[in-house]
């Protein structure tokens, strides 16, 4: 098989797998939430209710695709595509296994950060273009929240970059051969996880869409497949953040006995399950609490982590 054919096969398979898994995730999440809330979750359609996702997609696709007459049409249509596209693009740099992955960028980590930052535009523009007060408030919140959490999201990863000495994600995985970075970078892991949840707009940090105060926040006016794209984008985002946590802190595909791909998928799934548990367990903070938490706790914590890691790396050199 020629090199380009291998790349294309990788590309298409990864795209299909990410899409399929993200769709499946909506069902997995509901089942897991059920498990943790003493109920069953969707278990009627097909074996274990797994065909629920088919029913849901049919429903989403056949709903009226409505653009409100007061909306800014071009931006309104553009917004949901951005979130899906950026989340999928970021997946290009994720090293899934030694020979699986779309591109091997030497600035892979920066590319990931850039793409997750671009994803914010989707939410902000969606909230703005809807021309609806609730949507606008959701968009505002998204902008402020992303800005606050973006700051230490990047900084939290600099410790990993220092230890690995590279921005290349494959080099970072390789550098964890002896010891996963979750041990020396425990502070980095904690802060990156919090930032990641905020980036993915997941409960407890789903203030942009907080449905009990803002109807549905930035996607109040969205219906049909436009809403579906936001939905898919969110689930791809969760998968992406989980995959990045695994890559950066839990040794990516490294692990004994099982093949690398299985290790990667297993670890990613466990992280995703933790995200769902977080949603099942924790209430949403107030907006000022969220801001105070980001700037007054998380950012100093990241800087401390950076200082300690820098000192250790310097003294070791």
């Amino acid at each position: 098989m020629s090199e380009s054919a291998r790349i294309w096969a990788n590309l298409i398979l990864i795209l299909a797998a990410v899409f399929a898994f993200s769709a499946l995730l909506s069902w997995i999440e509901r089942r897991l939430l059920g498990v943790w809330q003493d109920r069953y979750g969707p278990n009627r359609v097909g074996p274990f209710g797994i065909l629920q996702i088919v029913a849901d997609s049919i429903k989403l696709l056949t709903k009226e695709d409505w653009v409100p007459p007061f909306a800014d049409k071009a931006v309104f249509v553009l917004a949901p595509t951005i979130v899906a596209v950026t989340a999928l693009l970021a997946f290009a740099v994720v090293p899934i296994a030694p020979d699986i992955g779309v591109v091997d960028l030497n600035i892979g980590l920066l590319f990931f950060l850039a793409m997750s930052s671009l994803g914010v535009y989707s939410v902000v523009l969606g909230g703005w273009a809807s021309n609806n007060k609730y949507s606008l408030l959701g968009g505002f919140r998204a902008a402020a929240q992303m800005l606050s959490y973006e700051v230490f999201m990047g900084l939290a990863l600099m410790g990993v970059v220092m230890l690995a000495g590279s921005f290349n994600l494959r080099d970072i995985v390789a550098a964890q051969e002896n010891l996963w970075f979750c041990v020396p970078q425990i502070l980095g892991l904690a802060t990156f996880t919090v930032a990641g949840i905020a980036e993915a707009r997941r409960l407890p940090f789903d203030l942009p869409e907080s449905e009990n105060e803002l109807v549905a926040g930035f996607h109040t006016e969205y219906s049909s497949m436009k809403f579906g794209l936001f939905f898919i984008g969110e689930y791809v985002g969760i998968t992406l953040i989980s995959a990045m946590i695994v890559t950066l802190f839990f040794g990516g595909w490294l692990g004994p006995l099982l093949p690398p791909l299985v290790w990667f998928l297993l670890k990613t799934f466990i992280v995703i399950a933790c995200f769902v548990l977080l949603r099942a367990a924790l209430p949403r903070p107030r907006y000022d609490q969220l801001m105070a938490y980001g700037w007054k706790v998380m950012l100093p914590l990241t800087l401390v982590n950076l200082l300690i890691t820098g000192a250790v790396v310097l003294s070791a050199a």
């Binding site: 943790w36 109920r39 548990l277």
Partner: peptide, 22 residues
């Protein structure tokens, strides 16, 4: 507190389901 909450919720995995599969 948050971690403790998460642990308690996790333990609910082993509780009996309250749903009656009508």
């Amino acid at each position: 507190n948050s971690l403790k909450t998460m642990w308690i919720i996790f333990l609910h995995m082993f509780h009996r389901r309250v749903t009656i599969q009508y």
